[in-house]
């Protein structure tokens, strides 16, 4: 019966994942490998193609202009692109929040602790969820409508060119584990339910929830990847890399705030990053 409960939990989280995340790994890999039929992404590889692609970017997600913060969008292709990324990130935070709420027991936790778990977990989750969209040459953006090359991202001015390179390095290694969407759903829940986040008021129930999801993940990986040795341990090791990447990412954003005088940081992202580490 216990194994049956763990299987049911894995199914439930996979269904929630499919419900809240519009671009699954299965869809992304189909697009990246050219097996998605007519769904061929627009490739951005230089400034000219970026200009052409901007129209697509702004159709695919809320544009900077729509936020109407009382000023014209700033000049500079890097900042404009950065704002598009922020809008998509804010929307992704909403998706992750909905997913978190679907984890059995999450909404019964102290509300302050729910806020803390999301504050500390959401950027780790967002970075992890970029992996299925990436290969060594570039990344899908804008819900899979656009493929942006890694070389183009590296050609942007500092520090913008430094923002995604560590994520590519991580993703290429992480993708060799070949997790699918059902594995990812459980792993995301494990990350969200980390009982060692600073300032948690009631750690015990969080650890109990995480323990159950961990058991479910271990069992699921054994069934789903019978030939992959030590996969559970390898997956859990990635949590350390994710924490380091968030620390580095937040430092880059702090640097941007100092160097880019006109920079506007989305209020939701500001909330999350303020006093994070």
């Amino acid at each position: 019966p216990e194994a049956a409960d763990l299987r049911a939990l894995a199914r439930h989280l996979y269904e929630a994942y499919l419900k809240y995340f519009p671009l699954t790994k299965a869809k992304a890999r189909a697009i990246l490998s050219g097996k998605s039929g007519d769904n061929v992404p627009f490739v951005i590889h230089d400034i000219k193609s970026l200009m052409e692609g901007e129209q697509l970017i702004n159709n695919g997600q809320t544009s900077f202009q729509e936020h109407n913060i009382g000023s014209d969008p700033p000049d500079g292709v890097e900042l404009r692109f950065f704002y598009s990324c922020q809008s998509r990130s804010a929307e992704a935070v909403r998706e992750v929040t909905e997913f978190a709420k679907s984890i059995p027991g999450f909404v019964n936790l102290d509300l302050n602790d729910q806020v803390t778990l999301l504050k500390y977990g959401v950027i780790e989750v967002l970075i992890l969820m970029m992996s299925p969209l990436m290969n060594k040459d570039g990344t899908l953006i804008s819900y899979g409508q656009i493929f942006m090359t890694r070389e183009f991202l590296k050609s942007l001015r500092k520090p913008f060119c430094q923002m995604l390179e560590p994520k590519f390095d991580f993703s290429v290694k992480f993708n060799t584990l070949e997790l699918d969407d059902s594995d990812m759903a459980l792993f995301l829940a494990v990350i969200i339910l980390s009982g060692d986040r600073p300032g948690l008021l009631n750690v015990k129930p969080i650890e109990q929830l995480q323990e159950t999801v961990l058991h479910s993940l271990e069992l699921h990986l054994k069934i789903n990847h019978p030939d992959s040795l030590q996969l559970f341990a390898k997956v859990l090791q990635k949590m350390t890399d994710l924490r380091q990447m968030v620390t580095d990412h937040v430092q880059l954003i702090q640097l941007l705030k100092k160097t880019e005088v006109d920079m506007f940081l989305h209020p939701l992202l500001q909330e999350i990053m303020k006093d994070l580490y």
């Binding site: 809320t62 804010a90 929307e91 935070v93 909403r94 929040t97 909905e98 709420k101 909404v107 509300l111 302050n112 729910q114 806020v115 803390t116 999301l118 504050k119 300032g199 209020p267 939701l268 909330e271 999350i272 303020k274």
Partner: peptide
């Protein structure tokens, strides 16, 4: 904590549409 994270708090309490974000 809730005071310092009003948007996050709102997202947790009810589903917010992308436009409201």
């Amino acid at each position: 904590l809730k005071e310092k994270h009003k948007i996050l708090h709102r997202l947790l309490q009810n589903s917010t549409s992308p436009v409201e974000l």
